[in-house]
Every structure is written in structure tokens, then in C-alpha cells.
Design a protein around this nucleic acid. Structure first.
Lengths: 244, 244
DNA sequence: GTGCAGAAATTGGTTGGACCATTGGACCAC
DNA sequence: GTGGTCCAATGGTCCAACCAATTTCTGCAC
């Protein structure tokens, strides 16, 4: 029997319908990322469904990173939406241990290098100026706060991913960035973590500005190498202290 | 069932706490994928939260593919869970168009090259023999079936990811591979798709067997380049035919 | 007018209770 | 057995509140 000739029937699919309607709304209103979308209460009323159903739908979108909810403020679009988006939720059974972190770094090394190269290929003058701006902010924060410019550092990298023209870079690395932070925020890490990588931000930028993909890739690899070194040093220190 | 494995919830960030408690429960009860977890009503009662909160949490898990809900039946575990999972929701804007596939290919190029290099560094003699075996199977399938050895082809690549020592390579690329295939099956592609990439499988293997990371990376890049070419040719053909 | 503290309105988060739709098993007539 | 009917369990939806964080407005002191 051809199993395809008897597909499961679909009766109710409320929250799916809500999401589809919401996609239509975002397109109709031409909402851009960052803009606020209607209140849950308004959506419930307009779509003639309960607020709970709206919330289930929005919870799904939030899980996909398409939307961000801020209590007391509203729900904000976080990424562009289209009727034919493809979702690929990937959950990795990772750990907080050293080797897991090294594994994410291996992935990041590959992606960071590729992103830097693509960025150098495709950056417009405006893009380069934007990256330069982020670099300045980061360097200033680094100097005034004696290191620990992680927030500005991250924005610099994000700018590169964005200019690479491929949103997947940012999405994948962002997930790992989060894991990374969860790790060394609380547990003790190396105090001057990230110091060694500092100079390479500028060299990466210079290679991008010079439209030199190969050079940009090489500098990105050097940066990741310093992070790996820091991580290994931290692990060694941890091992040492736990032995006493 | 041990009631102590479901202690009440603390304070704010309710649904997150629910998920954390649920992870603990799954571990405590050693639930395997396929097994049913407690009723929403029971969870709500045990955790001292409202059923809606439980539902929001389960909705998130459902969105991540960790769990499946069947009305009238129950909620079933779909994958293994661990306290420190890393979630990576990837969203491809614009589904079935050409650029989405090219974007996944850019990611795959970065990862494939890195995996091949790491594989060449770390492969044991047994690993190399295993890869050689997969290569033989693939080449034979290719010859007897006149191309279209996609299944065996994929297994060859998987062997490389596995030997790289980093499971993240396989998981990430596997997600994209699946996406890739969903387009390949139905929509018309180039008929001899993949033919051009065939010889590079052996050259990659040779570089790995020679413990030559740089060479392996270079050959992997060539392979991806041929796939990109095929894809571009397919897109051009499609464009041409849609104009008539 | 300006600035700022506090009240009020707005908005997402949570609760409890109700009912509907589907499922799957128990039971029964044939 | 076979096919039906009933019924309890379970996820899906709805409603009407209230809570907590945020934003906006208001009015007073200066």
C-alpha cells in the first residue's frame, strides 16, 4: 500500500493558524526587527482566539529566536519573518566541562574564519565603516575598563557575521557564545581572559578593510588560537587547584 | 513513582524552573525516548504551578523537538535530555530558494574543511581503515548504480566527522543535510548532481591517510566547490525553464 | 519651564477553573 | 472474533481575574 495515499487528516491547529496570521500581519505592516508587535490581548481579540492560544504561539516563536518578550514593555520582533521560513532547532547534548568547551571552539574556529573571509569579500564601504565603529567602541571600553569588554567585543564579532551576508553564522555562533558565557561567568576562570585576543580584533578589521579574505581568515584563526590557549591555561589552573 | 523527584518550584522564571525540574525528573526516573511523562495536571500539582505554566514549558520543549504531545494520549519524550543541553534554533529565511541552500553550503564548507583537517590529525590506523571501507562501498555503489550514491556518500562523510573527535560536526551538518535532501528529492535538480564531487572523496581520504591536515582541508574545499557549482547550474537551469 | 518622585496605565506572566476534542481501553451484542 | 458503544483520561482551548515589571503621565517643588 502506498502510505502516501493516506496522509493524516488535520483538524485543529489553532496556534499554527495564529502564527500564520502573524506572519501575514508582519508582512502587511512591514515590521522590521526591533519593532514592537501588537499586545497579546489585542492579538487575541483580533484573531478571535483566547490569549492563552496567542501565548502558546508566541512561546514557540520565542523559542525559535524570532521574537523577544519583555514583561511590562511588549513583544518585539527579533528577526525577519517570511511565510516559508525553515526552522532547524538543534539541541546538542553538551556539557559544562572543558572538553565540551573545546569542541564548541573547534566549531567556532571554522565558522569564524569563514565568516571573516566572506566578510572581507563582500563588505561595502558602509559595512567597513560600521565595523570600524564597533572596533573603536570595543577598544575604548577595553582601555577604560582594563579589559573585560566582552559585551562590546561580542558586538564587533556580530557585525562581521552580519556583513558576511549569511545569518547562519551569527545564529550558530550566538548559541555557542551563550554556552561559553554560562561557563565562565560563575565558575572561576582566568582573570585576564580575552586579553591576549585583543590585538587581533584590529588586525582582522584591517584585513577586511583591505578586502583580503585570506588575511582575514588567518587573523581570525590567530584570535581563536589565543582563546584556546586561555581556556587551556584556565583548565590547567583549575586542575591544579582542585588537587590541593 | 518517586514523588520526591518532583519537588515544588522556587520563585520567578517559572517556566524555566519547570523545565529544569523536568530535566531532573527525567534523569531521576531514567526515562528513555518514547516513554510517556506525567500528565500536565499531575506536573502542575506536583510542582505547585498552574497548568498553563506547565504547558508553556512543554510548548518550548515541543518546539525544540524534545517532546511530542498527543491529545487524548499523553506527552512523550522524543530525545534524550540533559541538564546542560545547548539549544541552537536555526532559521533559514526564505525556505526553498537558491540562496538558502547556498547559505547552508557556506556553513558546510567551513565545517567540512575543519572536520577533514582534524580527522587527518587525529585518525588512528583503525579509523583510517574504517574510512577506507566506507569509501570503497561508496565508490562501488557509484559505479554500479551510475551515480546517485547519496546514501553511501553520506556515510563516508559521517565517518570523517566521527573520527574528527567532535560530535558537533556531525550534528550540525546532519541537520543541514536533512534540509538539503528535502529539496533534492522532489524539486527538479540537476540530473547528474554529485557526479563532479565524486573523485574528491578519494583524494580527501588519501590526505587523511597520509596524516596531512592541510591537504585534507584543501581537498574538502574542492569537493564543496563542485557542489556549489552543481547548485548554481541547477539554479540557472531552473531560471531558464521558468522563463519560458 | 525644569526636574523628579510617585501614581496610574500598560503589558507580559501566572493562576484556577471550566469545557471541548481526541484517544484508548472496557464492555457488550452479534 | 467483529464491530459498536460508552467512559475515563489527556491534551487543547477558553475565560476572567490577579501579579510583576515597565512605561507613561501627573503634579509638586524649585
Amino acid at each position: 500500500m502506498d502510505q502516501n495515499s493516506l496522509p493524516p487528516i488535520q483538524t485543529t491547529a489553532r496556534d499554527d493558524a495564529v502564527l500564520k496570521a502573524l506572519v501575514g500581519f508582519v508582512r502587511a505592516e512591514a515590521l522590521q526587527p526591533g519593532e514592537r508587535l501588537p499586545t497579546e490581548r489585542i492579538l487575541a481579540e483580533r484573531l478571535k482566539v483566547s490569549r492563552n492560544t496567542v501565548r502558546e504561539a508566541l512561546t514557540r516563536w520565542e523559542g525559535l529566536g524570532l521574537v523577544e518578550r519583555r514583561q511590562g514593555s511588549g513583544t518585539y520582533l527579533k528577526a525577519a519573518v517570511s511565510p516559508d521560513m525553515l526552522h532547524m532547532p538543534l539541541t546538542l547534548a553538551g556539557g559544562n566541562d572543558f572538553s565540551s568547551l573545546m569542541q564548541t571552539l573547534e566549531i567556532r574556529r571554522a565558522l569564524e574564519a569563514e565568516a571573516a573571509a566572506l566578510c572581507a569579500e563582500r563588505a561595502s564601504q558602509a559595512d567597513i565603516a560600521e565595523i570600524a565603529r564597533k572596533l573603536d567602541i570595543m577598544e575604548q571600553a577595553f582601555r577604560t575598563r582594563e579589559g573585560m569588554s566582552s559585551e562590546e567585543d561580542w558586538e564587533f564579532h556580530q557585525a562581521i557575521y552580519r556583513v558576511s551576508g549569511n545569518p547562519l553564522f551569527e545564529q550558530i555562533i550566538a548559541a555557542m557564545h551563550e554556552l561559553f558565557h554560562r561557563f565562565w561567568e560563575h565558575p572561576l576562570g582566568v582573570r585576564d581572559f580575552g586579553h591576549a585576543s585583543f590585538p587581533y580584533h584590529r588586525t582582522i578589521y584591517e584585513r577586511i578593510a583591505a578586502r583580503d579574505p585570506r588575511g582575514a581568515r588567518a587573523e581570525a584563526l590567530k584570535l581563536i588560537a589565543t582563546v584556546e590557549d586561555d581556556l587551556k591555561r584556565g583548565a590547567a589552573k583549575l586542575k591544579l587547584s582542585s588537587q590541593t
